[in-house]
Each structure stands twice: as C-alpha cells, then as structure tokens.
Design a protein around this nucleic acid. Sequence first.
RNA 1: GGGGUGGUAGUUAAGUUGGUUAUAACGUCGGCCUGUCACGCCGAAGGCCGCGGGUUCGAGUCCCGUCCACCCCGCCA
Length: 592
Amino acid sequence: MARFIEELKKSHGAGELRLAHQGEEVVLMGWVDTVRDLGGTQFIDLRDRSGICQVVLSSENLSADQLEIAKSFRQEFVVAVRGEVIARGGKPNPNLKTGEIEVTAKEVALLNRSKPMPFQIQDEVDTGEEIRLKYRFLDLRRAPLQRALLMRSKAALIAREHFAAEGFVEIETPVLTKSTPEGARDYLVPSRINKGKFFALPQSPQLFKQLLQVAGFERYFQICKCFRDEDLRADRQPEFTQIDLEMSFVTPDDIMTICDGMLKKMFKGILDVDIQTPIPRITYDEALTRYGVDNPDVRFEMELFDITADTMGSAFQVFSGPANGGGLVTGIVVTGGAKYSRKDVDGLTDFVKTYGAKGLAWLKRDDGSFSGPVSKFVDEALSAALLDKAGIKDGDIVLIVADMDPSVARTAAGRLRTHIAKKEGLVAPDQFGFTWVTEFPMFEKDAETGKLAAMHHPFTSPRPEDIALLGADPLKVKTRAYDIVLNGQEIGGGSIRIHNQEVQAEVFKALGIGDEEARIKFGFLLDALSFGAPPHGGLAFGFDRLVSIMSGLDSIRDVIAFPKTTRAGCLMTDAPSEVDEPQLKELGIKLI
RNA sequence: GGGGUGGUAGUUAAGUUGGUUAUAACGUCGGCCUGUCACGCCGAAGGCCGCGGGUUCGAGUCCCGUCCACCCCGCCA
C-alpha cells in the first residue's frame, strides 16, 4: 500500500480516460463501484470524482498474490490500480463516457475496506431522505449530489470574479452580533464573559453592509451564512447562504444592472444558457394584478382576470357580495380544462382553501355555452366578461375565486395558476423565467395587531415622491425596493436604503417605534447616518435557491453539503443536542 | 401552532375481512463461472412490523397516544 500514494501517484481521474490514452500506463485511485467476478476474469468499475472506468483484473496480468487482493475487492472499498489503457476487448459500453476503453491492471492495492453500505451508491436512488441524511457522507458520493456541489462551487467563483471585476471589495462581517427584535426569530449565543447576555447570529449582514458604505468602501460584497430560527420548507433552511452586496451613489437601475450581469455570466458559464438582459421589470402592483403573487412565474401565460365590476349585479351572492363589498372576483382560464372531472375540480378547490379561499367557482365552455353549477348565474355581463376579458374558448374551464379580502382571492388564484401549470406540464424543465419586481409597498398591516410593519425592512427608502405620504397615508407609500424572481421563486431582493436620519426617524415613527426604542435597537445605525452617510443600496441573492434552480433540484437541501431536517436538526451529528450541566453553569444558564 | 403523506429484513416495497412459519427484489455472506458492464447460476443468513398503551382467544392489520422524515398553511422585516 505504501508503494501506492507515496511512490505511485494517482495519474488520472477514472472518468477522464479516452481512446486517446490508449497504450498509456495510468495509476487510478478511487472506490469500487461494482464488481463483476466471472471467475477467471474479474471486472470492476472504479469510481472517483471524475467518473467511472472499467478495470480488468485477471491472472494473465496479475501474480497470484495480486490476484488474491483483487478477489477481496467489494463495493465501496478504496483501491489503487496501476495498469495500461487499452481499447475494449469486448464491446464498448455506450453508457459510460469511458466506454471505449478499459484499464488492464498490472498492480493493485487495497487502500481501505468498507462495511456493507446502508444504501447503494447509485445516481438514481430510491432510499428515503431520512437514511440518506444520517449517512450524508455516503449520499454525497452519488454523482447528482457531487454535480450539484461542483456547480455551487463554480457559481460562487463566477460571482467572485464578477464582483471583483466590477470593483467590489469582499469584506467579512460579524457572526456574533446583536439581536434585533424585528424580523425573523434569532439564533442566540450566550456570552460566558457577560453572563445573562446573548449574541445573535445574523439574519443577514444588513446593517453592517450599510455601515461599510458609511465607511466609504462604495462597493461591498460577501458570500455569507445567514441564520433564521423559523419553520422550514423545501426552500428554507435555518442556515443559508447569501451573495450579499451593497453600493454607494446608485439607483435601483444600477444595482439591477450589476445583478443582471452576474446572472448572465453564471448561466452562460455553468449551463451555457443565454439570459436576455436587461431582465424584464414589473412593478409589485402589476405582479399582483397579473399573477396574484409578488413572485410570479413568468414562464407561462394564464394570467389572472378581474371581473369584479362585471359581477356587481350578479344574482350569485358569492360573486356580488365581494364585488360590492370592496372585495375581488378574479380567476384564471385553463385552456383545454373542460376535460377536468368533478374530482379534479374538488382537488383544486381543496388547494385554494389552503390559502384561505372559501371555495372555487367554475364554468366549462363547450359548443358556445357555459356549463357547471354556476352556469345558471351567468348573466349578460358575466358572459361578456368571461369571453372578452378572460378569453375563455370552447374546451376551456374558468376557475373563479371571490373574496371580501382582495389579497385572499388574489393569492388563491395566483397559487392556483402555478399549481395548474405544474400539473399540466406547461413549463419545460430547462426553461428559465426571470423577472424583477419593483416598487414594493413600504408597509403592510399586521393581521393580528393591526399595526404597521415594514414589508421589506425599516431601512428601505421610500420613493422620493412618496416621502410626504409617510405621515398622511403610509400604506400608499411605495419604495425603491426590488426582488429578483426566477421560475416563481424569489432568489434575491434589495433596496435603496434611507441615508437621511430625518426620513429614518419618520419611518420609525410610522412603525410605532419611539425615539428611545430606536436609539436602543439601532442607535449605531442612526449615529452612522448622521456622519455623512452616502446614498446607498444593495441586494442579497439566496445562493442556495439559485443553485437549486440551476441544477434542476426541488429542494435546497440537495445543494447544501450538510443540511438540516424540517425540525431544524442534523440527523448525522444529532445536533442540536443537550449539554452538560457544568457547561450551562459556566454560561450562567438554567433550563426551565 | 394547524393540515396532509409515510414509517414492515441493510435498502425499496407487498402483506387480503384481524387467523398457522411475515413475502419479494436489490444488497450481504458462501459456492460455481475467462469478456462482463444492473454479469449469470446455485445456496444461506438476515425482522423491536417506529415506540407506548388499549380492544380481542388472537394485532403488521382495529382504536388512542407519541416520536421521526417529507410536503403545505401560518411564520420567514
């Protein structure tokens, strides 16, 4: 074994060998992917990061001692082989990139054994995620996960190259920082030296990157971990990675342009996909009107219609009630949807109910007439609206959501839109649809307390023309904020920030944050704004989401080397775990 | 916090109305095999049916609770 590694160095990746290497002596090291022992001749597929190559082990080329070692090879043993690349004696294997050749072993070594695998190391694996997460180091041997992490690495490199070329400075910000009660729940870290006090892990480096603008760096970026102690989803992990940037003396357009450039390079460099730039921009209001959501999937049409005005006189209370009561009557037309069974529509009804809709009204169009339980309510106004505004045609179904709360109707219809697109396969898997969504409202009303809350964050700059509205009609105030949306997922967001302490004070006031409270929570920021803060703004990409979409994977867990479960734990390390009493005592912490 | 799906050999699954010894495939182990490539053939081992109660003569199967994984709503400035 010492002969390999110390004297005989690995010369090639197993997956790199081609007919051009014919006749060369190579040294391969890697894992035994499969063993095919025919008795007198034994074939193994040797796998390393680069791929797979067939190795021939036979008595014709190996001594008895060596042959005995070869016979001991099992799946996932770590082995080394010295041998000659030859053209396949048998037929080529079209399933392997190295299928034209094989390596005739002249010397072999067993570098390490392996226990039997908990699951097979194959590209397509049907093993449950629970067992794969427990043995994550084995799951990561699989080619799809290797590809995803290699892609992630490449994407990070392209981002660094892009921002470096644009004059950005990469600066690290603290991981142990101050808890801020706004926003997501903080992960807290106790301080041994300051008993009873806690650091918080950053939800984002937001304030620090603004302070770096006050410091005069003008262009900052960082690829950094962020932490949020909230419930998990397929696209949400408690710790995740942002590509974070901030610039001075810029408009929203400047920032969007810089980000367009990064995305263009990434998609070209990694997927060889050309993104049309500038990426289209629509306002928040337009996104809601056309798609019902602020993260629209723009890869397909099926836009929402608004028939509120057309149903005011309807005899159907489900429509006329909301239509006359400040609500909304909206929906979508599914082309060819007349084929839907009652059961299909029931399923869609259950779907919209999860978003708070009371139900789903539907009408089918066939042979120039409407059918369905609601058809008896189709008066002239509704018929005209469905034909002209909604554009329903023979063979279609129209799905309508009406609600006294316009946002409930919009959200339900909007989610229904993407739900059906997925069901009907309206989007190709390798299709990418980008859009910017701009001019978000400054505030939204908290459903429980009725108080105003910052929609983005309280440092977001209102549109200059809306500053006067801050006191008078805050819900009308629009901001210089923008989200970048890809395939219906928010992959980044940012804004121009407030650089003027009077405006900042007004925003705090609108949020019901008093002077004293503001000073305690954000005193350092207000301080900084008072010492010549330049106009500035920025954005942060959700790096995990971006990579997961690029790699065509459904969950960001698949692009994170060691992800956590939906209960925010790690099945491999068993974190989080209990700690010893002395450790708690040292920190001055007592469990209740 | 709420809703849903699932949990049976190492892995993936089947398991009828509650009924004898809980099946299969892959993997593992042993044997045979010199051109296989998901090698093939023969044989063997391998089970806390997630966990805890309950109903019953009898529970993988029915009931209650609980844990875990995943998906969704709420939440995520």
